[in-house]
Design a protein around this nucleic acid. Structure first.
Lengths: 223, 223
DNA sequence: AATAAGTGTGAAAATTTAGTGAAAAAAAGT
DNA sequence: ACTTTTTTTCACTAAATTTTCACACTTATT
């Protein structure tokens, strides 16, 4: 879950960021509407927290733009009694409104609520047949029995399952799991895939090789 | 029900006290954080009403201490428009926030609400097999015999048990237990975990290490 | 069939990480 | 002021993880 925090005051951004991170949300910050627009066009953002009072491109204008471009839910922050009326006209369908000063608890509660109803809740487990990943517990089970994976193997598996049926190049895997600053050997991945496959036992074939590209985690729809 | 009112202005304490008593709450007063800390360590308090702006030990510091020591719910009072970073100390669990000037009626409503839900939500003991934590008493028992833990060990254990089966990163532990302003060594945690494990004796294995991440308190469901 | 390119794999080497005891530093008691 | 306790840092070790690499193997191409 990635939240975009749009506020011109760094202090407020920081506070929100701090609390958001305790709930394991990733955060991205923007200090004005222009910056924010740029971000939502280039990154995947699940929810925007927007201070309506800002210099440069003000909140209202930004909000209009967002609603044109796509449907990311927005939580609007505003000083009490400020432009509440202006917001009337808005379709607050997926959105929420909060007056300052607000308690972080309240904000987090609303974030949770909105993400939930917009169907974007991160599930905390993944399951496919007898394969189960318990994300909070950092654990993987096969037919109910925990299998022990190293961190890299675990990360690899998680990345695979969030990209079911998509071929992932070695480069993609390196960048996402090892980070952009890894300058080692491509083939390191192969070794990790090997070990992951071994650990997956009966499910080892879910990871297929895409020759000349990389690997793919293949699952069949089970309707 | 005993409420602790922490505010440097006697006038406000008196107002709150008066109203609280109409609802048959007992009240205890403190005019600064130090005094208040002393009280919560020596008396049974069910709810704290805390003015965030105070001399001596200010409200935030006090709040952090309270949250470390035990789990008493807090209603925070604050002048409107006061800086938001003051909100930082929130434990988002059981607290509430109220801006001055507030109506006594509103305050009482929140008191009632919090006491109601904290009555249900905050059990005052934790038990798993022969391991028992007595929160109000700040004590831990193994098979009925008290074991003596240092404060950090106790805090660590409490945080673990409230996050059963969830892998906790060192960072998370540092932030939650040491506070966001601790800039020491990661490995300090390891040492404390070591000591906690030693003290847990037969239950030492409940704390498992999650390599590359941190630690996890693992309990098996006992249906 | 020969060749080239890409992949699987086992094992060794390099690196990282966690457990630990002991010392230093800080805090609390007396 | 002194002792005791708690907390933190640190260095060393053992162990686990990660990476590299050589060689066997597979697949695609000519």
């Amino acid at each position: 879950m990635r939240l975009l925090i749009v506020d011109d005051e760094k202090l407020i951004r920081d506070v929100i960021k701090t609390y958001a991170e305790t709930e394991n949300y990733e955060t991205v910050e923007a200090e004005n509407g222009l910056e924010a627009l740029d971000i939502i066009q280039n990154e995947k953002i699940d929810l925007i927290i927007l201070d309506i009072m800002m210099p440069k491109m003000d909140g209202m204008t930004f909000l209009e733009e967002v609603k044109k471009i796509n449907n990311i839910p927005v939580i609007i922050l505003s000083a009490r009694n400020e432009e509440y009326d202006k917001l009337r006209g808005f379709d607050l369908g997926t959105d929420d409104y909060l007056t300052k000063p607000f308690s972080p608890k309240e904000l987090l509660a609303r974030i949770k609520a909105i993400l939930k109803r917009s169907g974007k809740m991160t599930p905390d487990t993944y399951e496919y047949q007898g394969l189960k990943i318990d994300y909070p517990g950092h654990a993987v089970y096969i037919d109910g029995k925990e299998i022990k994976l190293t961190l890299k193997e675990y990360e690899l598996l998680c990345y695979f399952v969030t990209n079911e049926n998509i071929a992932l190049s070695r480069n993609q895997l390196l960048n996402k799991i090892w980070g952009y600053d890894f300058f080692g050997d491509d083939r390191t991945i192969d070794t990790h895939v090997k070990m992951l496959r071994n650990n997956l036992g009966p499910y080892r074939d879910l990871i297929t090789t895409v020759r000349g590209v990389g690997y793919k985690f293949v699952v069949k729809d089970e309707d």
